[in-house]
Amino acid sequence: MNKTLKATLISCLVSTTLLAAPAMASKLKIGIAAEPYPPFSVKQSSGQWSGFEIDLVNYICKEIKAQCEINEVAWDGIIPALTSNKIDVIFNSMSITAEREKTIAFSAPYYYTPSMYVGPKGSKLTTTPAGLKGKIIGVQGSTSNADFLKKNYSSTATIKYYNTQDELNADMAAGRVDVMLMDAVPAVDFLQSKDGAALEAKGMAPKDPLLGEGIGAGLRKSDVALKKQFDAAIKKMQVSGDFKKIQKKYFSIDLTPK
């Protein structure tokens, strides 16, 4: 009896140390929002994450020889999670903006998507501030699209801010907003889905500094070395053509950052 107890204890101890040891060695915690964002990050029924961004981050992790693990965080708390060390990297389609750069650092952009206006089929909409006068424009509040709308459209149109794109999509379908502004890539997917069948593209947003220079990995300002590694890996991914190879699996449009 005593022997079995001893053996159990020892095996328990050995196994925990063995399992814990590699975990201690520079495991990079990649933070992504818990809600799926197809085709960038999708949770499989097995609980594993997959998608375009997951492929990209796996590529980068391999390049910089880091062990990465995906951590789920609430999107609206993702920056506090980074600054409080709960995660080490935000890799979740976050636009690089001056506002965000006050709080965190960004890697070089790893992809870029334009923003697209989406509205009901058949509705006549000119997406200029004058054309959308008196209309209700829906936008996810935590995106750079919201900044852009607030600056240029808030004097002529009503802007409704949503916590998540899903809520906005539901309200678009229920006719509670006249038009919405969202990233073009998920928009293309959404328009092809059953929920987006009654909607169509109403044009792209013009180039604007508020819409950002592209999507970058969010890093702590103090992690200078990690930023250098990420920048180098992202550059290599573009130059070698590996980015286009990964991209082809998911998109018909080009997302190469400028």
């Binding site: 609206d76 506002e99 709080t103 509040g141 935590s142 919201a146 409704k160 801010y161 309200d171």
Partner: peptide
């Protein structure tokens, strides 16, 4: 604020989302 009505909490959520101050 959970159904996109801009009450004071909705306003705070917007500030939180856009300025990243919590």
């Amino acid at each position: 604020s959970t159904v996109a009505v801009m009450d004071v909490l909705g306003a705070a959520n917007l500030v939180r989302a856009q300025t990243l101050r919590t």
